[in-house]
Design a protein around this nucleic acid. Structure first.
Length: 479
RNA sequence: GCUCUGUUGGAGAAGCGGCUUAACUCAACGCCCUCUCAAGGCGUCAUUCACGGGUUCGAAUCCCGUACAGAGUACCA
């Protein structure tokens, strides 16, 4: 057999923006494709027309690209051999394949209504049947019976007929051998009454038509796999290799849900807060995957090189925000300065600057914070802490301002500063030394009163830098 | 309930039958540096791998049970 080109996909439903779980799925599929010189396909599974939201598809794609996960084929960059890339655009294709299954006698029209189905479920439950399976009420309907239902205005769904006592076995890329018995699975719907395929049917058709070779997806799809394998089997198609990744859980041990507000869910939120895409890439990469050589920091290329799906964890991973912060801080700290400026300047400009600074000044201000911040937006807050004068001091701060040293040190500093020609780190530093020599106050006694007087707080970046940023006039006006 | 999948420290985890008195990273804590906050440096943090049996000369590692957790059980994906 000729070795096929690896083709993988990320196939979100456009019911929301790109979130952490989706990004991680996409990431691992992307890595797999690139590792084996394959193609990464972006396709849209929009069969749930009620829940689709406008803009979701676009943002999914853009955020993916922002992360550096760049599709080889997508809704924007289709390959005519494999399109369309939106399921709603190929409805008649699914219809044809569903009809084929009916003709083969392995699928059938079902005229049961949702209410009837719900009632059936209830009855089974009451009779002690714990797991609900469709009772095949419509399996052998005659043409007359169907006609009668149709006259009542019923629109049929199409259900697939599961084989009897058949074991579906497959070798999961991350979990090893897994098997399911077909008896545990009821005849499920493949075409809804509105003529739109269900997920389990559409993926199979799409993956086959798009020649997808490997599917890395969330654990929640594990129990869908036998359903899909049944369809592959009926068509006589070779299924792709599946790998089921563990889900990501929140600190309470529950699967991350889009409604979970304790954790930021969407890539756009992280971008707005000043997270670096490479850092998120790296963080996501190590969430449920580890290298065999203890490395923690990977460039995209290194990740592609190192990736091996069999090292994917099979137990759930908890999303640890502190770890993400650390990773982001690492990336900020290690950026080269030009890239750093590009990244940080928008956040600097968001601060309430007391005067207008030249680009050069803004850059030197930014640099002061390079080792200080975890995320971009933190620089805005830190600058505002300096610029926006605090109206009320706490007791301890008042005390320091009323201390013996304060009474000596502050006037001395003010006087010397007003005479100083050049305000830069070196000169201001020297000035502090002089005061120390003349007044005898040093360390805390020297710096704290001035710090509190200027910034209204006991904490912050180095004094020299604060004065440098504020400038001579502004500093003196605060003394 | 049923089906499937898991369970190593606060978190991510390594470990794949003897090299493990359980690596590495984050967090936390302590010390150093220091005007403070960070950053940086140094150090501390599981005698034990959910529990109970078994296999073996030897088990965190293999097998079986139990407990717990998660996912699925839709005309959602």
């Amino acid at each position: 057999m000729i070795s096929e080109k690896v083709r993988v996909r990320y196939a979100p439903s456009p019911t929301g923006y790109l979130h952490i779980g989706g990004a991680r799925s996409a990431l691992f599929n992307y890595l797999y494709a690139k590792k084996y010189n394959g193609d990464f396909v972006f396709r849209i599974e929009d069969t749930d027309i009620e829940r689709n939201i406008p803009g979701a598809e676009e943002s999914q794609l853009n955020d993916l690209i922002w992360l550096g996960i760049i599709p080889d084929e997508s809704t924007e960059k289709p390959n005519p051999l494999y399109g369309p890339y939106r399921q709603t655009e190929k409805l008649d294709i699914y219809k044809q394949y569903a009809q084929k299954l009916i003709d083969m006698g392995v699928a059938y029209e079902c005229y049961c209504t949702e209410d009837e189905l719900a009632q059936m479920k209830e009855e089974q439950l009451a009779n002690g049947v714990k797991s609900f399976k469709y009772d095949r009420h419509c399996l052998n309907l005659t043409e007359e019976e169907k006609e009668k239902y149709r006259k009542e205005g019923r629109k049929p769904t199409i259900r697939i007929k599961m084989s009897e006592n058949h074991v579906f076995k497959f070798n999961d890329l991350v979990r090893g051998e897994i098997s399911f018995n077909s008896n545990d699975i009821g005849d499920f719907v493949i075409m809804k009454s509105n003529g739109i395929p269900t997920y389990n049917f559409a993926v199979v058709i799409d993956d086959h038509l798009m020649k997808i070779t490997h599917v890395l997806r969330g654990e929640e799809h594990l129990s869908n796999t036998p359903k899909q394998l049944q369809i592959y089997e009926y068509f006589g198609w070779e299924p792709p290799k599946f790998g089921h990744m563990t889900i990501i859980v929140n600190p309470n041990g529950k699967k991350l849900s889009k409604r979970d507000h304790n954790i930021l869910q969407f890539m756009s939120q992280y971008r707005d807060l000043g997270y670096v895409p490479e850092a998120i890439f790296n963080f996501l990469f190590l969430l449920g995957w580890t290298s065999d050589d203890n490395r923690e920091i990977f460039t995209k290329e290194e990740a592609i090189q190192a990736f091996d799906p069999s090292r994917l964890s099979s137990s759930p991973s908890m999303f640890d925000n502190k770890r993400l912060l650390w990773t982001n801080q690492y990336y900020v700290k290690h950026m080269d300065n030009d890239k750093y400026f590009e990244f940080i300047l928008p956040f600097v400009k968001k601060a309430k600057l007391p005067k207008s600074y030249s680009d050069k000044e803004l850059k030197s201000i930014s640099l002061i914070f390079k080792n200080e911040i975890e995320t971009g937006s933190q620089i805005t807050d830190m600058l505002n802490d300096i610029f926006v004068e605090k109206e009320k001091l706490n007791e301890e701060e008042e005390q320091i301002l009323n201390s013996e040293s304060a009474k000596v040190v502050i006037p001395a500093f003010k006087e010397k500063l007003s005479k100083l020609e050049i305000i830069d780190q070196e000169h201001v530093k020297f000035l502090f030394k002089e005061i120390q020599k003349e007044t005898g106050f040093k360390g805390k006694d020297l710096y704290m009163p001035i710090r509190i007087k200027i910034t209204g707080a006991m904490h912050g970046i180095e004094m020299f830098n604060i004065i440098d940023i504020l400038g001579k006039d502004e500093t003196i006006s605060r003394l």
